[in-house]
Amino acid sequence: MGDRPLLPGLPYLEGEVVYAVREELTRKPLDVLARRMGLAFLDREKARQALPRVVERMASLLG
């Protein structure tokens, strides 16, 4: 699914984005960053940094 980290030094993986889209039917990046990972609540700046990679990964999955 993807074992690369979203950002260096964070415990969140690209595979979590894949899982959220495929298994939990997530359709919005904020849903991944806030509800699935909680990163948006823990560190808003890190969530902003991770956003482009989340969007890119979701776009490849959703078309």
Score class of each variant (00 low, 15 high):
residue 45 E to Y: 06
residue 62 L to G: 04
residue 56 E to I: 04
residue 22 R to N: 08
residue 13 L to C: 04
residue 43 D to M: 06
residue 42 L to H: 11
residue 1 M to C: 14
residue 21 V to I: 07
residue 21 V to L: 01
residue 40 A to K: 02
residue 11 P to F: 04
residue 4 R to K: 15
residue 24 E to D: 08
residue 28 K to F: 10
residue 59 A to D: 14
residue 30 L to H: 12
residue 36 R to Q: 10
residue 54 V to W: 05
residue 62 L to I: 15
residue 62 L to M: 15
residue 33 L to Q: 01
residue 48 R to D: 11
residue 37 M to Q: 04
residue 54 V to Y: 05
residue 26 T to E: 04
residue 45 E to K: 10
residue 50 A to T: 07
residue 6 L to P: 09
residue 47 A to S: 12
residue 9 G to R: 07
residue 35 R to C: 06
residue 49 Q to N: 09
residue 39 L to C: 09
residue 4 R to H: 13
residue 49 Q to E: 15
residue 5 P to Q: 13
residue 13 L to V: 07
residue 24 E to Y: 02
residue 16 E to M: 11
residue 56 E to H: 09
residue 36 R to F: 04
residue 31 D to N: 10
residue 56 E to K: 13
residue 6 L to S: 07
residue 25 L to P: 06
residue 37 M to T: 03
residue 10 L to A: 09
residue 18 V to M: 02
residue 18 V to G: 04
residue 59 A to L: 14
residue 18 V to P: 01
residue 51 L to E: 07
residue 25 L to W: 12
residue 42 L to R: 15
residue 9 G to P: 12
residue 57 R to Q: 02
residue 58 M to V: 05
residue 29 P to R: 02
residue 55 V to R: 06
residue 1 M to N: 14
residue 31 D to S: 13
residue 9 G to T: 10
residue 13 L to P: 03
residue 5 P to R: 12
residue 6 L to Y: 00
residue 33 L to Y: 01
residue 12 Y to L: 06
residue 58 M to D: 03
residue 39 L to K: 05
residue 29 P to A: 01
residue 9 G to Y: 08
residue 4 R to I: 14
residue 32 V to P: 02
residue 16 E to Y: 02
residue 37 M to Y: 02
residue 19 Y to P: 01
residue 26 T to F: 06
residue 54 V to Q: 03
residue 33 L to P: 01
residue 20 A to M: 00
residue 26 T to H: 02
residue 42 L to V: 13
residue 47 A to V: 08
residue 32 V to W: 05
residue 12 Y to C: 07
residue 49 Q to M: 14
residue 53 R to C: 03
residue 40 A to H: 03
residue 39 L to Q: 05
residue 4 R to F: 11
residue 28 K to G: 05
residue 17 V to R: 03
residue 56 E to A: 15
residue 34 A to Y: 00
residue 31 D to T: 12
residue 43 D to F: 04
residue 21 V to F: 00
residue 30 L to W: 12
residue 26 T to D: 00
residue 3 D to C: 14
residue 16 E to R: 03
residue 45 E to M: 08
residue 61 L to V: 03
residue 30 L to E: 12
residue 13 L to H: 02
residue 52 P to L: 05
residue 47 A to Y: 04
residue 24 E to L: 15
residue 29 P to D: 03
residue 25 L to T: 11
residue 4 R to M: 14
residue 44 R to Q: 12
residue 34 A to N: 06
residue 39 L to N: 05
residue 16 E to D: 09
residue 47 A to D: 07
residue 2 G to P: 11
residue 33 L to E: 05
residue 57 R to G: 01
residue 27 R to D: 13
residue 34 A to G: 08
residue 51 L to W: 02
residue 41 F to K: 08
residue 13 L to N: 00
residue 3 D to Y: 12
residue 27 R to V: 14
residue 2 G to Y: 04
residue 30 L to Y: 09
residue 38 G to P: 08
residue 12 Y to S: 06
residue 53 R to P: 07
residue 8 P to G: 08
residue 1 M to R: 15
residue 30 L to N: 11
residue 2 G to F: 06
residue 23 E to C: 09
residue 26 T to M: 09
residue 10 L to R: 12
residue 9 G to A: 10
residue 21 V to Y: 00
residue 22 R to F: 01
residue 34 A to I: 06
residue 63 G to R: 07
residue 7 L to P: 11
residue 29 P to L: 05
residue 1 M to K: 15
residue 5 P to I: 06
